[in-house]
Design a binder for these strands. Sequence first.
DNA 1: ACGAGGATGCTCT
DNA 2: GAGCATCCTCGTG
Length: 205
Amino acid sequence: MERLSDTFFARPTLEVARDLLGRWLVHEHPCGVRLIGRIVETEAYRQDDPAFHGWRLVDPETGQVRPQGRAYDLFAPPGTAYVYLNYGMYWLLNVVTEPEGVGGAVLIRAVEPLEGLTFMQKQRPRARRPHELTGGPGRLTMAFDIDGRYHRRPLTCPPLYFAAGEPVSDALVATSGRIGLSRGNDLPWRFFVRNSPYVSPAFRG
DNA sequence: ACGAGGATGCTCT
DNA sequence: GAGCATCCTCGTG
């Protein structure tokens, strides 16, 4: 299966978020297990967006970027991992988009487990229903054993990368506002596969 | 099925 | 010290 390269990610963030649906997230785990999930839910974050972590780094007048703090990693080369710990407990996996120096990222919110289910279930012993295993940005990182050690590493080569998979047709794609934000909820920058059992029921639309 | 509340640590003010 | 790009448990219906 062909890997997605940096040219895939060096595009407008909304385009990448939409196009990642149906692609595969692959983790060749150090212990020898290969984990694969088909992406069914994403969210786009752009540098002109108040919900974007690096929002304050951009001068609204000049467009100049202040290279400071962790959020500056969102301006890294396309295809770089931005792995963020939120609520002190959950790692969230993003892939950096746009050309280097332009801010942007796509949050991977849910995948459909395709390979390595035994490992994933061991990671998530409480999961009972299908969507509880890998549905939700914090859940999928637990299932795939992804944490801060991947922050700033390329997602264009093993051990953690994206594979071409099969794109999803427009008829099967839905959009909505992004989830869990206090600002920028009005922007329809969440993309998900319609009626997927692997998207949380409350957010299936 | 759904809503409220708590856990918990990092970043920036 | 506030504010989180969340998840789980335990109430109620």
